[in-house]
Design a protein around this nucleic acid. Structure first.
Lengths: 195, 195
DNA sequence: ACGTTAACTGAACAAATGTTCAGATCAAGC
DNA sequence: GCTTGATCTGAACATTTGTTCAGTTAACGT
């Protein structure tokens, strides 16, 4: 047997990335073998190399895609307005975005150490850019007296860490719904930086 | 060559755990080989099995030790008092404890997925116990009107996620000192649950 | 209908993995 | 000084790892 029926690169390519994302998030980059990914896709391990030069690129590409999508999505969602308004938008956007992509955040925040130096630097820049957009909001609000934060960079890190935490425990159909979770987190964040 | 000079189980045993902790935290459980751990200790791979039945137990033991130490340390540090006082104690204790043990928290919160089911359940219980002590404080404070938290379990998770974040960026000799960081985090936490 | 080529298989590769074990070596007690 | 037992080496093991590649198949343009 060789080429399967009804299979194209246009189908298999995304399937490979989806499978890798799912498995990396579930078990960690190092714990997942190319054969497991291939199995998930329904293909032999060798076929994966039609869609990625190697395993490391698979991880780096997934992380880059995620970060670029995140930055673009926030750029689109940012409605401007006063710093408190923008902060609320940011918090709700961040939670909503990641609850829709729980696997993404898992690898984006846990697999940095498995990136080779060159890839690491690239992803770190994207990450700092995203974090920077929150710092910017906090700076603007602090200048106007909306927020009382002794160090906006630290506050941004603390805020993102808190918001990210949601994906580690939130389960669809659980005790709390999305809207509730979103509002409760936003409320905590709002108060934590309040003047 | 065989037995090295001046080496005892009393020395090598802890060394093995230290090396494993350091390497697991740095690169992740799955990415670290027994030979790397042995190399760090200054011993051959086979010798590790004098101190652990297998690699999995090494991880599980490290996590259990960490959680038990954490629980014991908090039990000793908890001075009682009003809920706001206890919350402050908890926050400061948590940050201080983990800044002293950055590697521990890394594996305790990132390697859960690499535990076999039996070990996972055991560690999860310890983790819930620790988280429960924070929930308890929040419940008591909410009942007295000290805190305004719509869901104490969620608030506890959010708080711990925020506090844990400190170990991902804090570096000794950096822009901010320990005491400053501790106070800023406590201040954010205090406000985030304030009535 | 046919040839071309993209998509995939299946086997192979060297290297690395966790783990075992017979034997070598040293420290300590008699 | 000899024996004993704890401590470690070094080689071996079966598997699994990431990756390559010659060959096979099926879809598509002509």
């Amino acid at each position: 047997m060789a080429r399967k029926q009804g299979s194209h690169a246009g189908i298999t390519g995304p399937k490979v990335r989806e499978a890798a994302l799912k498995l990396f998030a579930r078990h960690g980059y190092a714990a997942v073998s190319m054969r497991q990914i291939a199995g998930e896709v329904g293909v032999q391990a060798g076929a994966l190399y039609l869609y990625t030069p190697d395993k490391q690129s698979l991880l780096a590409d997934l992380m880059r895609e995620h970060m670029e999508e995140l930055l673009a999505a926030w750029a689109a969602a940012d409605r401007g307005g006063t710093p408190p308004e923008r902060l609320e938008d940011f918090a709700r956007f961040h939670i909503r975005h990641h609850l829709d992509r729980p696997d993404n955040i898992f690898i984006a925040y846990m697999e940095l150490r498995n990136l080779e130096p060159e890839n690491f630097r690239e992803i770190e820049i994207l990450r700092n850019r995203y974090e920077g957009s929150l710092v910017e909001i906090l700076d603007a609000g602090a200048a106007r007296g909306d927020f009382a934060v002794p160090d906006t960079r630290l506050a941004a890190k603390a805020a993102i860490a808190m918001l990210n935490g949601v994906t580690t425990w939130y389960r669809e159909g659980g005790r709390l719904g999305r809207a509730e979770v979103e509002t409760i987190y936003w409320d905590m964040l709002r108060k934590s930086v309040a003047a």
